[in-house]
């Protein structure tokens, strides 16, 4: 199957329920979108991620009731450095969407634990390994590494062997 070029024009992607809902709510919250290999990615402005998530969860026509994953990408040494990735699934409509938030100056973003409780451990893992702070998280402690660990091992400037 030949590779179809990605669609990045918002006008061509308005048919997707998640993007249409978001643009109707606040078009300033959407930084951009990409439709590549049958997958829709929406770039969200940092300050509105929690509201966007509760909007998508409570959508009557296409409720994204399943938070599949929250993870992080370190683009070091490029800026903006960190990118938080949310994978959402609407079980009833069998629709998937990927939300991305770029973190420029400071590595912190609002927690979505109040929207989906499943985000709790995902965000703790991202905090543990990337050092991204989630504001409003109920218990932001290290999850995988020892409690007294210093540094964030999955950052690209962290040596694989650690500092021993």
């Amino acid at each position: 199957m030949p590779l179809v070029p990605a669609i990045t024009e918002l006008d061509q992607l308005k048919g997707h329920p998640a993007l249409a809902k978001m643009l109707a709510w606040n078009s300033e919250a959407v930084e951009g979108a990409k439709f590549d290999r049958d997958e829709l990615t929406i770039y969200i402005e940092r300050s509105s991620i929690r509201e966007v998530c509760s909007l998508l969860r409570d959508d009557r026509d296409c409720p994204f009731n399943f938070l599949v994953d929250v993870t992080c990408v370190d683009w070091y040494p490029k800026q903006p450095r960190f990118e938080i990735v949310y994978h959402l699934l609407s079980i009833t409509r069998k629709e998937r969407v990927r939300l991305k938030v770029r973190l420029g100056d400071s590595p912190e973003v609002d927690s979505v634990t109040s929207v989906w409780p499943a985000a709790n451990y995902f965000e703790r893992e991202v905090y543990d390994l990337f050092g991204v702070r989630f504001n409003g998280h109920p218990y932001l402690r290290r999850l995988l590494m020892p409690e007294d660990w210093e540094g964030y091992p999955l950052r690209k400037d962290y040596p694989v062997e650690g500092y021993r």
Binding site: P153, Y158, V160, Y163, R164
Partner: peptide, 8 residues
């Protein structure tokens, strides 16, 4: 596993 997480 010559990594940060593993005891050598």
């Amino acid at each position: 596993f010559n990594t940060y997480a593993v005891l050598q």
